[in-house]
Nucleic acid binder design. Structure first.
Lengths: 159, 159
DNA sequence: GGAATATTACTCGGATACTTTCTGTCCGAGTCTACCAGG
DNA sequence: CCTGGTAGACTCGGACAGAAAGTATCCGAGTAATATTCC
């Protein structure tokens, strides 16, 4: 899985601490973890295309969450960055070669593909069940200052 | 996930139909699905390094399963090809930036990494629970001729 | 003083290089088979 | 006919290119705030 996913999840989490009437520019979000600004911007664009965040141009512009943190799952973020393709894609190689034309192969679903699809579903189920809101609550429990600290940094009250 | 995984699983399945006193050369296995021989050989080498198949050189050589199909899980095959790294790797970016030095970040485990690790475990559990033996039984039920047909092709009785 | 306007600075967005991984190919080292010669 | 040796061919194994995806960067279009000018 690409590194952009990690950045995207962290950024969504940071945006969840932003006052709802403000937007945070990419540079601010990037500075929180010393990430390359332009490349993080690319990931945020992907989130915007997927409708998870909304973007606003110009001064005082930037990104904000497009809906409540409780309604953004980790699966949403992963698919926004990585695309909708499953990790295992069946190329139907069984339809090639000397026995490829046999009708059995077309009627029945590929057993191997089924097994991997099942695993993929288990993985998706887990990611769908965890939201940015869940992470927000968990992190605030572990590190209480993080909410105010991050908000202050993003709105520009800290240097 | 790389395409080699699909080839490797199919090849393990084909090898499970091979008489236990024989070995199948890469060229035979590749011809079953019109795969590039040399590249499939590369994947089989990876399986050999992982101890899933054993290789024998020279005439009448090739590959055979190193243990019973029931004791080779899909997770074994995936890890042999893709390596042991999890799909999501936490780079600990939270330890960088203005708040990176805060001791909170080091004591507590990364919440985001935890969530992805949980999903990865669900995925692994599913793959560990499915073996080449399971696939063999399922395919034989769907397409009874496949066992004798594949065996005949691999031992070279068919052209 | 207030309002309309022009300027300026800031932000996103897509187009453009560079790096790593994946895909595909080639040739050499080792080994087993089969043939051949000699007893 | 049997035994030993030799040549041959077959197979794996790792080293070597090409293609695709991921990573990183830059500059232009658009926008909102600000400063300026005029009434």
């Amino acid at each position: 899985m690409s590194e952009g996913v990690e950045w995207a999840v962290h950024s969504c989490l940071n945006l969840s601490w932003l006052p709802s009437d403000r937007a945070a520019p990419t540079a601010r979000l990037a500075s929180l973890f010393d990430l390359p600004t332009a490349y993080l911007n690319k990931q945020l664009q992907a989130l915007a295309r997927a409708g998870l965040v909304s973007s606003v141009s110009g001064p005082r512009g930037g990104f904000r969450l497009a809906r409540e943190p409780e309604r953004i799952s980790l699966l949403d973020v992963v698919r926004a960055i990585e695309g909708p393709e499953p990790s295992f894609r069946c190329r139907e190689i069984r339809q090639q070669g000397p026995f490829g034309e046999e009708p059995d192969n077309h009627r029945q679903a590929c057993t191997i593909a089924n097994a991997f699809a099942e695993a993929e579903l288990a993985w998706q189920r887990q990611l769908r069940g965890t939201t940015i809101g869940d992470l927000k609550a968990a992190v605030e429990r572990k590190v209480p200052k993080v909410a105010t600290r991050t908000r202050a940094w993003l709105v520009g009250e800290a240097p």
